[in-house]
Design a protein around this nucleic acid. Structure first.
Lengths: 343, 343
DNA sequence: CTGAAAGCGCTTACAG
DNA sequence: CTGAAAGCGCTTACAG
């Protein structure tokens, strides 16, 4: 590989000049003729900077780590793309890791940070975890942003408008004529689950519908949790005519539990799920969802982290462009009663 | 951060000694007493090596890139884990990228390689792509292994036993009593699709069953492809009593197309899909699958790449431990005719 | 307008 | 048994 020195020799100048031309040093005064010579020499050698040397000199690794609980989860793929593309524009490389790296026994995150392998972290916490645990395990000065968290105490955070997503899903069902509406919610220790529950309550309140605690569950965002949640509702007594499901993965579980119970969706139970992933198009029936700005969440996380790395200080970002929007498919309809009434 | 120099000062020795102790240099002769002093000093400062400095000196970045077509695809998450964990044991970090980086216009891969940011690449090609395209776009000397490819011409490759997986799925259906069996296959330009088709043919031949070309499709591994494939079969004439579906994602599409057509699975159509991902448990009905050693595939890819990086030369690896195994769920049963016959 | 030099933090061949 | 020194390839304050 060509080094600065090779280019310099070729152009008949010193390495300093080449470096400054390459980095477009604003303080550089140089004759156009010289600059042209340097540029020509650069092309001639197809020079690329050696990254390790530059990192050593600048004390910047040019890499950030994205930590997610489970690489398996399609929910995280769109934000990952947002992170990756935004980072790439700033010539940052993204290292994919698991939230488990933030572990007291074997703290990979601390290691990466100390080694200077990574300039900062974007962290998606596990739903089961205390949100402040991260503060104990992250090196104090490591730039970091928590993703999918509203107003994290201690670190920068970025989140989407979960309140509005749930409010929208709920009022969509209200507008369809539903009056008995349940919520299959996430774990209450997550800020997204809390925001979605608030959105749900608000929509009910706006419509003058009484909330029924026994139609609200909090088992989490996984298919297994969704399955358990519906079984719970089934065993508890009468069912609502429809459900807002706080996560599309949980909705997959709800659907399969409904199927097992011989419940027809949407005929006997309408479902609107939050998050629009590929799976929603391929369930039976295809799921009506609320599409969220996942890509933009990741992009915002990357930008926020870059700000922190530059010394910008803590920020909390709420991504609401584009806003949540209903993707109507076939898991919803008007409630049986209202359809009869209309005939 | 503590540097070598700090530790050395603390221990009252030179930096060379500390470095050698740290790296367990076999050529180092040292008094036990001195070694102990150095070790104590290391603990005292909680020293970690500076990665950039080491990379510069050793001409090794300590990172590998894993390029996959679509981070969205659960199929790739298990191998990713295998790569990541195996790499971590060798103190390598994994950088997640997209196969699109291998692009003539904007060749990110070439850039990373030239910059020395990455020591090698594990590449999952896109199904649509010519398998040799990678040879044109990869810097000639860049260590690389192609994942999910049998005997790649030009690069090292690792694959699972796709032949056996399809053979197993097919003979499982044969043993159930099926005699009319179709194959929903992948794109024929991929080596996995070809191997699976061979396994399918072999099982039929072994059972003395004639293969019917009109019951075999080659649309690919996606849900959309599976959907199209079933529609194709439906419009073409009589259906077989069962299908081997070469990919679980395609099977999701087959299932939803069957549902739309009012075809009962498994009553009218049995399905066995290759690959066991979380989705298989949550479809209606849950899918009978062949579980494949995906984690081990990734692990093998990482080990193979590490070998290439050490200068080991080209290798082709077939991962067959653990072997493919049937995960029986509810998408299969004996064919209607044979059940009647048995009564 | 351009160059010489220091220094980022390591590793390692060599000297003693 | 241990140390001094070169050098990996950059950037940048400083000198001229």
């Amino acid at each position: 590989m060509a080094r600065l020195r090779d280019v310099a020799a070729r152009a008949g100048v010193s390495v300093s000049v080449v470096s400054r031309v390459l980095n477009e040093d604003p303080k550089l005064r140089i004759r156009e003729e010289t600059r042209a010579r340097v540029l020509r020499a650069i092309d001639g050698t197809n020079y690329t900077h050696n990254h390790a040397a530059r990192a050593l000199r600048l004390r910047r690794s040019g890499a950030i780590a994205l930590l997610i609980p489970d690489v398996t989860n399609a929910i995280f793929s769109e934000p990952s793309r947002g992170v990756a593309e935004t980072a790439a524009e700033a010539d940052l490389v993204v290292l994919l890791g698991r939230s488990e790296w933030l572990d007291a026994e074997n703290n990979v995150v601390a290691k990466l940070s100390h080694q200077g392998r990574v300039d900062g972290f974007i962290i998606q916490l596990r739903d089961e975890e205390r949100s402040t645990k991260v503060l104990d395990l992250l090196p104090v000065d490591a730039p970091a942003v928590v993703m999918n968290w509203h107003q994290h105490k201690g670190l920068s955070s970025v989140a989407m408008d979960d309140f509005e997503a749930a409010r929208l899903a709920t009022s969509f069902l209200v507008d369809l004529g539903h009056r008995s509406i349940g919520l299959i919610g996430g774990l209450p220790q997550t800020s997204t689950a809390r925001a979605r529950e608030r959105g749900f309550r608000r929509a009910l309140a706006d419509a003058g519908i009484a909330m029924r605690r026994d139609w609200m569950t909090q088992f989490g965002y996984t298919p297994g949790a969704g399955r358990v949640a519906l079984q719970h509702l089934l065993s508890a007594g009468t069912l609502p005519t429809c459900l807002v499901v706080a996560n599309v993965n949980a909705a997959v579980g709800v659907l399969s539990a409904a199927h097992d119970a011989g419940l027809d969706v949407p005929e006997q139970l309408s479902i609107v799920a939050i998050h629009d992933t590929w799976i929603a198009e391929h369930t039976s029936p295809p799921l009506t969802t609320v599409r969220m700005p996942f890509y933009e969440l990741g992009a915002a996380a990357a930008r926020t982290l870059m700000g922190v790395i530059e010394g910008g200080g803590k920020h909390h970002v709420l991504v609401r462009d584009p806003p949540p929007v209903i993707m109507p498919r076939r898991s919803h309809m008007s409630p049986a009663g209202s359809r009869r009434a209309r005939r």
